[in-house]
Design a protein around this nucleic acid. Structure first.
Length: 489
RNA sequence: GUCCCCGUCGUCUAGCCCGGCCUAGGACACCGCCCUUUCACGGCGAUAACACGGGUUCAAAUCCCGUCGGGGACGCCA
């Protein structure tokens, strides 16, 4: 590759909005490999500009998950570096400074339209089957009009001024040239009315300031790339190279999502996947390993990937994230362990002291001999429990409404903060809304999670079992029941 | 709807860029057999794909065009 002599700098830019995502790990892996192969730097930047979706615990989970996989960054919020700060919320002044330049440039303008107005227009356009687009209301306000609005303290956003005529062409390193006509590029909001930048502005400014040479990101960004390229032009900067990786997919080929797949790295870790297996599996997605290795076993380490992986050989078709194959791979890695190492892995996860002692506390008053320990706690140790309808179906309920309610429980639990009182309150509220008694409500959840109507206290059990595994179990229960119902029809 | 991207076994892929070695290779899953007191593991085997149609060429999975199919984007989310 001809670029090896340059100063290669790449980055990933996850948003701390929840659990760390397998997609982040995938893109992180590719960036990491690329940096290592070219003697470059790999930067981790936290894009926390969306206050509404911000989750305080998320950032640390992202760090932990990436390190668990062996993906190490050279610069980032926790390790520092010469181009910090690496958290966008700490860079607010920088974005303000640069957006001023665009305003002065006449390549951006203030927009006083309200979210409600914009939403109404969008709906109209959708209904008329016209591409939804900003109507340009504020694009040509006079200076007086703007001063008046500002004087009145009308909240405003700042939008980029996309040229009316012409088109923007950029090069995708894997696909070649891609052209977008400007009438298909909307006047993107660059700065929100709360003063925070949007992704597009912050991303371009930071990538430039952090001297990023190659932007390696997911395919979903292709359609906003012309906006980014235009921004580089507005600023008078050189754009980096762009590489858009294929999107990981659900079984049905749609973009991978938590509704159809476990996507949380926390889940995979807690469910007992080894990082070596996970990273190997991610390396299989999209290919890129040479035939002699791929055809031999498909098994390789992170180090082997650094040595042999070639980003230019990535296949562009979106790979289905196939749990079955991941599980097989994980089994391979498990079997390859020495008995001692295997036992050590067990002690680190499902037989960890903290886990066992927490469970023990729940059953102490409920058993009469120690050997009964397993009777009440089996569900903590099995990968899944699938109760039959006799067990989970409340007496006066139909299967369909019960599954629908379980789906509601799932939604509530997804959104819930993971502590017993918050969960209890949220579930009770749901029950009241839907006309489910507390007893029906909690018994349903109990049977789904434990497989039995008799179990240790539900909420405490859920705390120990963990959010990721709880949600997964609920999801799998609903899926399995739906599949069964469909078979009967 | 509009724009953009993509298209090799059910799934992940090798081959594609640089046409012939492709009778399209490997892996997972599925099926069968062997091993085995059970279940796994392991071994062996079978089924299974170049989306379709046109070109270019002596020759196309590989290059070009079209059709169809799939996906993504269209937010004061990232």
């Amino acid at each position: 590759m001809t670029i090896s002599t340059e100063n290669i700098r790449v980055r990933i830019a996850p948003s701390p909005t929840g659990d760390p995502h397998v997609g982040t790990a995938y893109i992180g892996l590719i960036n990491f490999l690329y940096a290592r192969q070219h003697g470059g730097k790999f930067v981790l930047r936290i894009e926390d500009t969306d206050r509404a979706r911000f989750v305080a615990t998320s950032e640390q989970m992202i760090f932990d998950a990436l390190r668990w996989l062996g993906i190490e960054w050279d610069e980032g919020p926790d390790v520092g570096g010469p181009f910090g700060p690496y958290r966008q919320s700490e860079r607010a002044a920088i974005y303000r400074e640069y957006v001023e330049k665009l305003l002065a440039n006449d390549t951006a303008y203030r927009c006083f339209c309200t979210p409600e107005e914009l939403e109404a227009v969008r709906r109209q356009q959708m209904a008329a089957k016209v591409p939804p687009r900003y109507p340009g209301t504020c694009r040509n306000l006079t200076n007086d009009q703007i001063q008046l609005k500002l004087f009145e303290s009308t909240p405003c956003t700042i939008r980029m001024k996309v040229p009316v005529e012409g088109s923007t062409t950029f090069r995708d390193e894997l696909r070649g040239e891609i052209t977008f006509n400007h009438n298909n590029v909307d006047d993107q909001v660059l700065m929100k009315s709360d003063g925070f930048p949007t992704y597009h502005l912050a991303n371009v400014v930071d990538d430039h300031l952090m001297q990023i040479s190659d932007v390696i990101r997911a395919e979903e960004w292709i359609s906003s790339t012309p906006k980014h390229v235009l921004l580089y032009q507005f600023f008078g900067w050189d754009a980096p190279r762009f590489w858009h990786m294929p999107l990981l997919r659900n079984q049905d080929k749609s973009k991978i999502s938590k509704r159809k797949n476990p996507v949380s790295l926390v889940y995979y870790r807690q469910a007992g996947f080894l990082p070596e297996a996970m990273i190997n599996f991610l390396g299989l997605m999209g290919g890129g390993m040479p035939a002699e290795i791929n055809n031999a076993s498909e098994k390789f380490t992170l180090q082997e990937m650094i040595e042999h992986f070639n980003i230019r050989n990535i296949r562009l078709g979106g790979p289905v994230f196939d749990l079955t194959k991941l599980r097989w791979l994980n089994g391979e890695y498990l079997r390859a362990l020495t008995p001692e190492a295997f036992y050590a892995e067990l002690r680190k996860s499902v037989l960890a002291d903290e886990y066992l002692s927490a469970i023990a506390a729940l059953v102490q008053t409920r058993i009469e001999t120690l050997s009964e320990f397993g009777n009440l706690t089996g569900f903590f140790f099995s990968d899944n429990v699938l109760p039959s309808p006799e067990v989970f179906l409340p007496k006066k309920r139909m299967l369909e409404e019960t599954l629908a309610f379980a789906g509601e429980q799932l939604t509530v639990l997804e959104a819930a903060e993971w502590n017993a009182s918050a969960i209890e309150a949220a579930l009770k509220q749901l029950g009241e809304q839907q006309g489910w008694s507390v007893k029906e409500n909690f018994m349903l959840l109990r049977t789904i999670l434990t497989g039995s109507q008799m179990s240790p206290p539900l909420l405490e059990s859920m705390m120990i079992f963990g959010k990721a595994r709880t949600l997964d179990r609920l999801r799998r229960f609903i899926d399995a029941q739906k599949k069964l119902a469909a078979q009967k029809k």
